[in-house]
Simulated assay, not measured.
Amino acid sequence: MSDDKTLSDRIDALESKLMFQDEAIETLNKTITEQWLKIDALTRQVLSLSDRLQEAEANTPGAANEPPPHY
């Protein structure tokens, strides 16, 4: 009888741990998904800003290495 109770307690403990692990995995999965979406949005924003900077540099009048007019 004692062995049955011990076995039942061990199974209950394992089921409890499994439930906690399932919840932890689901929470981590949601967190990773949210972070991936943010990383993707930031990557697109950096690429857009890089393109805009290249356009601005290309449209800058005069060479960047010319001395100022008072020289």
Score class of each variant (00 low, 15 high):
Leu14Trp: 07
Asp4Cys: 08
Ala56Pro: 02
Thr31Tyr: 03
Ser8Trp: 09
Asn65Ala: 06
Arg52Glu: 15
Asn29Tyr: 13
Trp36Gly: 07
Ala63Val: 00
Asp4Phe: 11
Leu37Ser: 07
Lys5Phe: 09
Asn29Glu: 15
Leu47Trp: 06
Asp4Pro: 03
Asp40Leu: 03
Asn29Gln: 15
Lys5Ser: 10
Ala24Glu: 06
Leu42Thr: 02
Ala41Met: 01
Glu66Ala: 07
Pro61Trp: 00
Lys5Asn: 10
Gln54Ser: 11
Glu66Gln: 08
Ile39Val: 15
Leu14Asp: 10
Thr60Gly: 01
Glu15Arg: 04
Ser2Gly: 14
Ser16Met: 06
Asn65Glu: 10
Ser16Asp: 11
Leu49Val: 07
Gly62Pro: 01
Asp51Gln: 12
Pro69Trp: 01
Tyr71Arg: 07
Leu47Asp: 15
Asp12Asn: 13
Lys17Gln: 15
Pro67Ser: 02
Met19Pro: 01
Pro69Gly: 03
Ala58Lys: 05
Tyr71Phe: 12
Ser16Tyr: 09
Leu37Thr: 03
Ala56Ser: 11
Thr43Asp: 04
Gly62Val: 01
Glu26Asp: 13
Val46His: 00
Asn29Ala: 15
Thr43Glu: 05
Pro68Asp: 08
Glu15Thr: 08
Leu37Asn: 03
Met19Cys: 08
Ser8Thr: 13
Asn65Pro: 00
Arg10Trp: 08
Leu37Glu: 05
Ser50Arg: 05
Ser16Leu: 12
Ser2Leu: 14
Asp40Ala: 07
Leu28Val: 05
Leu18Asp: 06
Met19Gln: 14
Ala24Asn: 05
Lys30Asn: 15
Ile39Asp: 12
Ile11Met: 07
Ile32Asp: 04
Gln54Tyr: 07
Lys5Tyr: 08
Leu18Cys: 07
Leu14Pro: 02
Phe20Ala: 14
Ser48Trp: 05
Ser48Gln: 14
Met1Arg: 03
Ile32Thr: 09
Glu66Ser: 06
Leu28Gly: 10
Thr60Pro: 01
Asn59Arg: 02
